[in-house]
Amino acid sequence: MSELTPLDKAEAAVREAEGNSDIARVVAAVLATQQAMQQQAPAQQCQRDHPKPRRSGGEWIGIACAVCVGGIGIAFASLALAILGGTAAIVVLVLRSMWTDYQKGR
């Protein structure tokens, strides 16, 4: 007599559970069916390494433009900080001079 495959066993369990209203048997039949299906069709995995997509010319032009705009922004920010620092130094010197003149006048 030939041995039953897992799928045949699962089908027999389902037929047995159909006539019985016992929930545990229905659940067991469903689980057996799922297990049999998993054993029949194992998941195939792709073993091939896919090459990374290369950038097009347009993307490189966009990157270059972004770098240029960023560089110009950093230059303007540096210039603004230099002007701010010079202005702050002049204000401090003027206030110091005014303070010494005020102290001498007393």
Rank of each mutant, 00 (worst) to 15 (best):
M1Q: 03
E3P: 08
L4E: 14
T5V: 02
P6W: 02
P6K: 03
L7A: 03
D8Q: 15
D8K: 07
K9T: 10
A13D: 07
E16D: 09
G19V: 06
N20H: 00
S21C: 04
D22Q: 07
I23D: 01
R25G: 10
V26D: 00
V27A: 12
A28W: 00
A28L: 03
V30D: 06
V30S: 09
L31E: 11
L31W: 05
L31F: 03
L31D: 06
A32C: 04
A32V: 02
Q34A: 02
A36M: 08
M37L: 13
Q39N: 06
A43Q: 02
Q45A: 01
C46A: 07
D49G: 13
H50C: 12
H50G: 13
P51E: 11
P53V: 12
P53I: 07
R54G: 12
G57S: 04
G58R: 11
I61L: 09
I61Y: 04
G62R: 08
I63V: 03
I63Q: 01
A64S: 05
C65V: 15
C65Q: 12
A66D: 01
A66E: 02
V69F: 13
G73E: 06
G73I: 10
I74D: 02
I74T: 08
A75W: 15
S78I: 14
L81S: 14
L81A: 13
L84F: 11
L84C: 07
L84A: 11
G85M: 08
G86F: 07
T87N: 08
I90K: 15
V91D: 08
V92M: 07
L93T: 14
L93R: 14
S97W: 03
T100R: 08
D101G: 08
D101V: 12
D101H: 12
Y102G: 08
K104F: 12
K104M: 09
